[in-house]
Design a protein around this nucleic acid. Structure first.
Ligand SMILES: NC(=O)c1ccc[n+]([C@@H]2O[C@H](COP(=O)([O-])OP(=O)(O)OC[C@H]3O[C@@H](n4cnc5c(N)ncnc54)[C@H](O)[C@@H]3O)[C@@H](O)[C@H]2O)c1
Ligand SMILES: NC(=O)c1ccc[n+]([C@@H]2O[C@H](COP(=O)([O-])OP(=O)(O)OC[C@H]3O[C@@H](n4cnc5c(N)ncnc54)[C@H](O)[C@@H]3O)[C@@H](O)[C@H]2O)c1
Lengths: 205, 205
DNA sequence: CTTCTCTTGTGAATGATTTCACAAGGATTC
DNA sequence: GAATCCTTGTGAAATCATTCACAAGAGAAG
């Protein structure tokens, strides 16, 4: 059950959610594949990892598959999220409504800048990062978004693990070391840009 | 020459840049691997795709390898970048100094909100997206960052391709269709969060 | 100059992921 | 209710990526 299969499930779910509103009842693996940029067999393989949800000769019923995928991905519950680092990227994330709509609710915001501490973002008071434990007692979170400067990221991650966070989405350009059982996803825009640069290096100018 | 190999090169380069400042002269594949979270053999395989830069028995000289990696990744030149979508995420990106430091310079910002058009961000006047062609004549860009709402993303991408952009980093949660020869990298935080959710689904509460 | 140490560079082996091909089997038609 | 159509579900094959093992070879030491 590869990482990439899981990411595709997430894309299938998104496609299904967009479809549902168009009133489609049934979708074939071929059509779903086209929506997310893969192939029919790939879709079927991915889904078959978790059971068989289609009807032969017909396809997949949109709504039930959607429910099933949400379930598989662990999205049939809500996740509480702590944001550490109330900077520019943090501000964009807090103001972004889609995460909440998809079940990820930012319940805690922490920073170490005295100027920021106490101000409210989206109804949430920014707390001092030194008092993480206290903040988590009030508003526990299973997941954290880490948006502090690179130098501060490892310490912040350690603290997050200490207060019980089991998953971190890291935006800082550093590889985090975390104990077994803690999941980290790294969003690294510099790497994305550099792999664009690699792709273009001979094509342009 | 896989996508993932290229991404690792980018991480090796970052590690080397951090090291150089520490005054390390030589680094072994083992050490470099540790820094980026992979293995020695993997580092050597990745590098050997492009030549042999090390000395047996010793390791890799930091500075020359850095230069070589920059070259391989197409980073020994500067890239001009257009930002389309001057929203919250766009604001964070424009204010973020690291991209420029690593050779990616935002030279054009476009939006379709009359309120925003004409205001200056970081010294750059936000232009109307309808006049993309004109904006590109003044400030051409090879690369674009796309940070518009999902519904607008495909149209914006089409327009970017028309004015000659060859690489797009897309932040909107949609799969873009682009012609052959145009590279797209998709930064999809919702997918990241959902794959965290998958990893935690049975571990938490 | 020879030996010893150490780490690279790389073919071969292993492992993972994707693609393929097709039997299985519901739905629809006549 | 039989025949036809169509798309799923899935082993097997092919491709792709990583790991391994070790010969090659540079430098240090004696
Ligand atoms: N802004 C972007 O577009 C962008 C893009 C890619 C990656 N990133 C990365 O995301 C991270 C945040 O970037 P940003 O642009 O929002 O930076 P920023 O400087 O605007 O924000 C960082 C915030 O973290 C806070 N902070 C610093 N040390 C802290 C600590 N120890 N504990 C808690 N809070 C702390 C600061 O007070 C500040 O509010 C950085 O690692 C950056 O490299 C940012
Ligand atoms: N904010 C986040 O944290 C976040 C996280 C993940 C993904 N995203 C994605 O990034 C994109 C931008 O998000 P945001 O939060 O900055 O949204 P936003 O609404 O703050 O900004 C979008 C900007 O695009 C402009 N725009 C709209 N249509 C346009 C068009 N046709 N041409 C040019 N400009 C146009 C708007 O005027 C606005 O300034 C969205 O697709 C969003 O889903 C955002």
């Amino acid at each position: 059950m590869s990482e990439s299969a899981i990411r595709r499930l997430s894309l299938y779910l998104r496609a299904l959610e967009e479809m549902g509103d168009d009133g489609e009842e049934i979708v074939s693996s071929r059509l779903l594949a086209e929506r997310v940029g893969t192939t029919g067999p790939q879709v079927r393989k991915d889904l078959s990892l978790f059971g068989s949800f289609g009807t032969r000769g017909l396809g997949y019923a949109v709504r039930p598959l959607r429910v099933r995928l949400r379930d598989i991905l662990g999205l049939s519950r809500r996740w509480s999220v702590a944001l550490v680092g109330a900077g520019r990227i943090g501000a964009a994330l807090v103001a972004y409504p889609s995460f909440r709509e998809r079940g990820f609710e930012i319940v805690t915001i922490l920073d170490n800048d005295p100027e920021k501490i106490g101000t409210r973002w989206n109804g949430i008071a920014i707390g001092p990062v030194e008092r993480m434990e206290e903040a988590f007692r009030r508003n526990p979170a299973e997941v954290a978004i880490l948006a502090v400067p690179a130098e501060a990221a490892q310490d912040a991650a350690d603290a997050l693990v200490r207060v019980g966070v089991r998953g971190i989405m890291n935006l800082a350009p550093v590889r985090l070391r975390v104990p077994e059982g803690v999941a980290v996803k790294h969003v690294d825009m510099a790497v994305e840009l550099e792999s664009l640069s690699f792709a273009l290096r001979h094509l342009v100018r």
